[in-house]
Design a protein around this nucleic acid. Structure first.
Lengths: 210, 210
DNA sequence: GTCTATAACGTGATAGAC
DNA sequence: GTCTATCACGTTATAGAC
């Protein structure tokens, strides 16, 4: 039995090689700026093979987009719907999970936000809208906190925007941040790691602010 | 003398008409997904005219990119370097100025962040790096606050990321926010307007949090 | 300055040999 | 399944008439 390979796709099948290459290139350049030839080259295969396996650039893109987007959303949904954790716990988990993910794959948020601009439907299919939020344990705990006077009576959407903004925005703006802060290799990720501990503290104060 | 027109470009010259159309289309779709024909059509002129005035798609894009980006940055720089206002004042001004701007032109942040991904040099030319931050009145006031124990000793970059994240991120993620929140026409902007008052309060708490 | 027509090129996709 | 060669098409850019 072959050993699990973490590193490059040496002995995995061609279909997987193409998908991995497509993911990398699409994430980096977006749909419109990506040429199928780029993907083929990245995968170390011939252009014709790409169409043999996936029929078209668009079909391949849709596949990658769906996988990336649902993976990105799933993290939130799972954490938000955990009945066994406190609101504070959920905030910590979100910050921690996303920062870990985004240190590994920093292009994901910009990729998703950019492509949604041109394929807005993709989004609506994958998410089943308000239910995710309206019916989550997270929302119930938030409203409960408001009722008990522990949380300021502010629209929960503000808090969600705040939490995601604090967590995700730095990765979207990283080229600007790195220039503004004159950061060297690795310093950016060090800052992001610091934020895993800071964001829950900031969020806690935000929750109390009227 | 002709009266100032806020609305459509009826009697302005062709060059300006093309630039306005190019700005609109590039902002919406990005460089790669934009076809020069789209711009020509939007401008109500012929495709050949575009090349007559601007030589190439890329030259036209660079022009728009420079204008958009420097306009976007200038707001920060001016506010950050005002010696006559307090730190708190500056936070209010940033939130207020950017939210007003982004309600009018919500595509700007995503446009800038996306295009910097492919043209990272453009950025470095326009910003003269660390000086903007390191030498600003804002930075001095921040360090002063830390020294006096009024502000928690946290890297100023964190605070900048927080402030911009709270202000700008909702516009970048607006399609997602609108679905998650099941928002109707206009409700999103109403939320953003609320944030003009809330962000300074949240920022104030964040500044104190160790 | 503005248009129509077209050249020149890049890219997605397929035919067909192996 | 994989490759080379090529087609078909869309897009940028220009030539040339008005």
């Amino acid at each position: 039995m072959a050993s699990k390979k973490v590193a490059p796709d040496l002995d995995i099948n061609t279909e997987e090689k193409i998908k991995n290459a497509a993911r990398a290139v699409f994430h980096k350049k977006g749909f419109a700026a990506t040429r199928t030839r780029d993907i083929a080259e990245e995968a170390g295969i011939n252009l014709a093979l790409l169409n043999y396996y996936f029929r078209s650039k668009e079909k391949l893109f849709n596949l990658i987009m769906m996988e990336t987007f649902s993976g990105f959303i799933k993290s939130i949904v799972v954490i938000f719907n955990d009945e066994t954790t406190s609101l504070e716990n959920k905030v910590e988990s979100i910050a921690s999970a996303y920062i870990d993910l985004l240190i590994m794959e920093p292009q994901i948020p910009l990729f998703i936000m950019s492509e949604i601009r041109s394929h807005p439907d993709q989004l609506l299919k994958t998410i089943n809208a308000k239910n995710i939020i309206t019916n989550s344990a997270f929302a119930r705990q938030y409203q409960q906190g408001v009722k008990e006077g522990k949380i300021a009576p502010v629209n929960i959407l503000h808090f969600i925007m705040n939490l995601l903004g604090l967590t995700i925005f730095p990765f979207i703006a990283s080229p600007m941040i790195q220039v503004i802060g004159d950061l060297k290799e690795g310093q950016f990720n060090k800052l992001m790691t610091e934020r895993k501990k800071m964001i829950p503290k900031w969020a806690k104060e935000i929750l109390k602010t009227k």
